[in-house]
Amino acid sequence: MALLETRGLTMRFGGNVAVSDVDLAVEGGAATGLIGPNGAGKTTTFNMICGVLTPSGGTVTLGGRDISSLSTHRRARLGIGRTFQRLEVFSSMSVRDNIVVGAEIRESWARTTPAGPQLLAGGADLDRDDEVSLILERLGLMDVAESRVGELPTGQARLVELGRALAIRPKVLLLDEPASGLDDAETASLASLIAELTAAGLAVLLVEHDVPLVMSVCSMIYVLDFGRIIASGTPDQVQQNQTVLDAYLGSGSR
């Protein structure tokens, strides 16, 4: 059984079915891609997994436990971290404080709900300051650590969100278009960071429009269109799939 699973996840807004009957399996120690055209329901699926939206139907299980009825913060404590497609940084605070808040919030709940190890540190136990510095360093944010996040370009602000999510030491990390706004070099280092985290045991669910990035880091890919999963498989399988080519990559590609 996969670490994170959804069964029949469905979301209706009035008469409009945004997500319909989505089954996902996100394995630990691997990155899983979720791709699809704009409006396919990717972010809605994320919102249902982390509890921001209550699904109209279906279940979410984490490590075999049904977490469908838990609130957002309870799910976060059980190990679901995420970033946002539209930025949700603490824009009036410094970059460092954004990460510090993440670490502090984790420390406050970790007394009752044990958190996992810090994967960036190879599981070593760090004190808070060291852990925050490590995260800043690994995300290349050391130079802007004292800047207000509201003043950063979008790409760097996304990295702040990623760092903040890592500060709660999640078991599953949902990344919503982390590479948009990054240049090629930054995207490459993001890819290697994701590879390192998954190698250390993290489960990553990646929504991304940068198809080469998805193909390179993900071992499993789901393709969503009009709220339904139209294909799934390894990067190679998905790239060969005619339905996918028609719906998403454009019928002319490959």
């Binding site: 982390c50 509890g51 921001v52 609130s71 957002t72 913060h73 976060a76 404590r77 679901i80 971290g81 995420r82 946002f84 949700e88 940084v89 603490f90 824009s91 009036s92 605070m93 954004n98 808040v101 993440g102 919030i105 984790r106 406050s108 709940w109 709900t113 969100e161 903040r164 999510a165 500060a167 709660i168």
Partner: peptide
């Protein structure tokens, strides 16, 4: 302050 800036982000951190 974090909660004022973004309640939803705070919730997804476990607050």
């Amino acid at each position: 302050t974090a909660m004022k800036d973004s309640p939803v982000a705070c919730a997804t951190l476990g607050l």
